[in-house]
Amino acid sequence: MKVLRNKKTLIDYIERQREMGKKIGFAPTMGALHLGHISLYEAAKKENDEVISSVFVNPTQFNNADDFEKYPQTLEDDLKLLENAGVDAVYVPKAIDIYPEGLKSKHYDFDGLDQEMEGKFRPGHFDGVGTVVEELLRQVQPHNAYFGEKDYQQLAIIKKMVKKTNLPVKIHGVPTLREQSGLALSSRNLRLDEKQRKEAVIIYETLLKAKEWFKSLSPKEIKERVENIFKASNFELEYFTITDEETLKETETFQEGKNYRAFIVAYAGDVRLIDNMHLE
């Protein structure tokens, strides 16, 4: 596996792959990799000749400086995991390779997708995500790029950014990979103690209940039940919402022919955990 540590090395490498007519699949990461990330590369390997990763902790998408400082960085372990997964090359840029003019986000019009859910709690977050992903896609020039459905709002925003900037890449969503307990795999799980990790299954179990209640209750009734579950737990619920899958706007009634998704964000101590589930 090639480790490409600056923009010039990456661009030379990509030019060679393209000259050989290879189809390139790419999944960017912020490191602290787990099997959820590896599932992105397994999906990429099925549809591409060359599979590329990147590891870059992007400062502009953290609206909380403390969160950025605490974000786990495990590059040596990440590289071993990527090599074992059969990834062909990994790009490990420095900030100057992504932000040659300083750490500043572009501003995007995401048609309101960025104003919902995470956007309300993390101002500027999605401009940071859009900026780094657009830059990485321009440098790597993949035919296909892969993102996990665990960050469903992020996936929707990246699809919107690609459409609006006319980037010639197809964006694929990959289903959330879970621990045996149902807890969604996340780099933040590394910060949970053993007790929190066991109790965190409440998030998945609550989503399953919401999926069941969806058949007979209104969004308001489901939300009240979810809030009551968390009041009786050791977890602090930041928000629960059921949205239209396309607009991500919270719904007040269920309508035939529309797709809906439930989203939960909760804190175990100071660790923020997110998850979501398609309702049917």
Rank of each mutant, 00 (worst) to 15 (best):
T74R: 03
G119F: 12
D66P: 01
P123H: 00
Y71A: 04
D114A: 15
S54G: 03
N48C: 15
A89P: 05
V132P: 00
G36P: 01
H107D: 08
K106S: 08
D78G: 03
L136N: 06
L35M: 14
F121E: 11
N58V: 10
A65G: 08
K70S: 11
K70V: 12
D127M: 10
V129D: 09
R122G: 10
F110W: 14
I98Q: 06
F62W: 08
D127W: 09
A32C: 11
P72C: 03
K120E: 07
M117K: 05
G36W: 01
K45I: 09
Q73R: 12
E101P: 08
S39W: 03
H34K: 06
E134L: 02
D97C: 06
R122T: 13
P123V: 01
I96F: 08
L82D: 02
Y41T: 10
F110H: 09
V132C: 07
N64D: 13
K104H: 14
F62N: 10
K46P: 04
K70G: 13
K120S: 09
Q115C: 03
K45E: 13
E42Q: 10
L82S: 06
K94D: 09
L33C: 12
D77F: 15
S105G: 09
E50R: 11
D111H: 13
A44W: 03
P59E: 03
T131S: 02
V57S: 02
D88H: 11
S53Q: 05
D88N: 13
A95E: 09
N48V: 11
L35F: 15
G130K: 00
N48S: 13
G102C: 06
L82V: 13
D78W: 05
Y108L: 13
Y99F: 09
H107Q: 12
E135D: 07
F56K: 04
S54P: 00
N64E: 04
L75E: 07
T131R: 03
E135R: 05
I98D: 09
D67L: 01
A89M: 02
V92G: 01
E135M: 08
R122H: 06
E101T: 15
A44Q: 07
F62G: 13
V90M: 01
E101H: 14
V57W: 06
L113P: 15
